[in-house]
Amino acid sequence: MHLFEQVMRPMLSTKQLHVLTDRVPKADTVEFRYWVGRYKLNLGNIQQARDLLQLAFNDCPNRSKNKRTILIYLTAASIGCGIAPRPALLSAFNLHAQFGPVLEHIKYGNGAAFERHLNAWMPWFAKFELVLVLKEKVTFMIWRTILRRVALISDPGNLSADRDVQISLKLVADALKIGYQDDSYDVDDAQMIVLCLIDQGYARGGVRHVAAMVTKLHIPPPSALTKHAAKPHSHELYHID
């Protein structure tokens, strides 16, 4: 992989990646974008990875076996960006058993169930080298859901109206305890998790640590954070919210 980086550096500039001209055969373009996409995914640069894999997926002919492989990595990268494929798409490629529950656990903030699912499918995810990426990204998205759900419960209906809410960190900690079925979560953890979400732009607001409150909380949809060069096809992907 280190060699890959050295050899490919001149070709990896963002401009080059998107301006592959018509002169290059389509099959080569798809293959190139697939591998670079996987490389970026491994590096942790999921937004670029998702863009490339989406382009590869769109260009890959439907009859090709590779389309399913591309979709596996595209789904993993998309989850990290807060975008989920439609269940119909996953079913069509026979991936619902693996990714369906993951999406559901993210939606309900069910961390404990996600851990169980990942353990049950460990050999499959390891075969595609996705365990580490999924563990990291899904954990983050579950944190986001939990915070969002707490905000919704404390002030129902107001998130959609784009009004800021105020919630107590104690509530977030309780929600984490339920989500992960783990009593070791406390107010400090809740605070750190909120800080992590705010720092990366997945939530807006301020923390009053003495009063253990989050104020002016607003959780934008994930799509507002990522500027994608490749727009998801409306019938293929939807946003996690």
């Binding site: 960006c81 807060g82 406390d186 953890d189």
Partner: peptide
């Protein structure tokens, strides 16, 4: 080790730009 490793990452850890969705929480 995988759990610890995922908690040890941080958004500025990758070379090109900031990483997205990195779960770091020191107390965890």
């Amino acid at each position: 080790a995988i759990t610890l490793r995922s908690l040890l990452q941080h958004p500025t850890s990758i070379k090109s730009g900031r990483a997205l969705s990195v779960p770091y929480a020191f107390t965890r």
